[in-house]
Design a protein around this nucleic acid. Structure first.
Length: 444
RNA sequence: GGAAGCUUGGCCGAGCGGUUGAAGGCACCAGUCUUGAAAACUGGCGAGGGUUUGCGCCCUUCGUGAGUUCGAAUCUCACAGCUUCCGCCA
């Protein structure tokens, strides 16, 4: 959420910055809501002040045994107007809140202006795509010899699920373990194990709600299957959520970042650095027909996620550091990649600056996203009321960062394709071999 | 699923329907003392918002939402969350 003060101070400027990401800020509506809010709030508070002071007088008079009927009549006459004013104020505040919570973050000044991913800016390219003296196969063809089984996954669940067996399943596990160990042992992150089902407040805190509910899976317990249809935006807002209304996390960013929701972190504990390996669940609504082959785009995939909770002055340095931590994994695995700075039109809702890391996929003859590292500045922290106590002892909003390091499924795809051999086997990158019982090659 | 209890500021913890935004303690900040620190002592100290050039003034806030009342942390109702016990269960 943006700072309402910033909107009051520089509405046109913020509108211009939002326009670069294709968001049209309805400035007239904001000004109208603000004007209404101001008059109604002033009036309401006047009436409340009058009621409060009169009620105090009544208390004092009664204590002295004086007659209070005159004052009581006076206060009573406020009743209706006050009630009405309070109701109006409530309405305008809700309207303002709803207006604010669907506005995306303002891009950082260094973000290139552009409409789509075509205008993202390449920051650097690392590694050289491997040359093959045979016809390269994609991970689906390679994988089906080694234990990648989409048919069975489809039988069990449906489209956009995959099933791994044997060495391939172990390689998948090895990748996650390697990533976790690297980040905890070498990069100073604290390993966390977190809930995969979260409440609406948490989804709101990181920005998935209220705008992107259709991208999420929501649960219902067996008892309340029939209730699913009645679950409404009202429930989400009123937070009348109970056990049958959890959301499946689309990324570990949600539970991990929300660790600091509604809390004040002592200054000396900053920065907080957490890593979590979790499955992620995405409805992929609206992506019909895209990446239908293979395990590039799934309803369920594993990801190792880095989260940093930092002092506002440190967030951009933190982002570079976090990006480097993600890159380390690719370097260790010997996978060629490039780093892209997302243009204004391609960034996610909550981000102020995002780097994507794209890994080389030989079969597609192109780079594909394998990590996304973002600085959210105070956007999420404001929604979460995640704060620290500054040097003056006053609570101040934190900055939040996160990045994938890496998406495990896509890393597996990249390893299969980049390390494929003419005979259909796959060489295991050296850093993974300790996790594979010393195995050097996957073959059928 | 059944039963009981609980929910107050950064933390712990008092709180009769009437100057209670809320005692007390811890933590924190400033000062005195000290070579320095600790201890002791003195003072300060919740958060969010409105308004004002500023001092300040005002509003909201005791899990959430309704209600009773001139007035609610205190009374009523609903809901949520937490804890414990029973049942079921990995």
């Amino acid at each position: 959420m943006l700072d309402i003060q910033a909107l009051r101070n520089d509405l046109a400027g913020i509108a211009a910055r939002l326009a670069t990401r294709g968001f049209v800020l309805d400035t007239a509506k904001f000004e109208q809501l603000e004007a209404e809010r101001k008059t109604i709030q002033t009036r309401t508070q006047e009436l409340q002040a009058k009621r409060n002071s009169s009620s105090k007088l009544i208390g004092q008079a009664k204590a002295k045994g004086e007659d209070v009927s005159a004052i009581m009549a006076e206060v009573a006459s406020l009743g209706d107007e006050l009630k009405q004013a309070e109701a109006q104020l409530g309405e305008v505040q809700v309207a303002l809140q709803q207006f604010l919570e669907v506005i995306p973050n303002t891009p950082h000044s260094c973000v290139p202006i552009g409409k789509s991913e075509a205008e993202n800016e390449e920051v650097r390219k690392v590694g050289t795509p491997p040359q093959f003296d045979f016809e390269v196969k994609d991970h689906v063809s390679i994988g089906e010899q080694l234990g990648l089984d989409f048919d069975t996954a489809t039988k069990i669940s449906g489209a956009r699920f995959s099933l791994l067996k044997g060495g391939l399943a172990r390689l998948h596990r090895a990748l996650a373990q390697f990533m976790l160990d690297t980040h905890t042992d070498r990069h100073g992150y604290t390993e966390t194990y977190v809930p995969y089902l979260v409440n609406a407040d948490s989804m709101y805190g990181t920005g998935q709600l209220p705008k992107f509910e259709r991208d999420l899976f929501r649960t219902s317990s067996g008892d309340s299957i029939g209730d699913v249809i009645t679950n409404s935006q009202e429930d989400v807002k009123e937070n009348t959520f109970s056990i049958n209304k959890f959301y499946l996390i689309p990324t570990a960013e949600v539970p991990v970042t929300n660790m600091v929701r509604d809390s004040i972190v002592p200054l000396e504990q900053l920065p907080l650095k957490f890593v979590a390996h979790t499955p992620c669940f995405r409805s992929e609504a609206g992506s019909y027909g895209r990446d239908t082959r293979g395990m590039i785009r799934q309803h369920q995939f594993d990801k190792v996620e880095l989260v940093q909770i930092v002092h506002p002055e440190q967030s951009y340095a933190g982002l570079e550091e976090l990006l480097g931590h993600a890159e380390t994994i690719l370097q260790q695995l010997g996978l060629p990649y490039r780093v892209m700075k997302l243009c204004s039109g391609d960034m996610g809702f909550s981000a102020a600056l995002t780097y994507d890391i794209e890994v080389w996929l030989p079969a597609q003859n192109t780079y594909r996203e394998i990590s996304s590292c973002s600085n959210f500045e105070a956007f999420q922290a404001r929604r979460m009321q995640a704060r620290f106590r500054n040097a003056q002892g006053k609570p101040e909003l934190l900055h939040t960062l996160n990045g994938s390091a890496l998406a495990v499924g896509r890393t597996l795809v990249a390893v299969l394709e980049n390390y494929q051999q003419a005979d259909g086997s796959v060489i295991i990158p050296e850093v993974l071999r300790p996790y594979m019982g010393g195995l050097e090659r996957l073959s059928r």
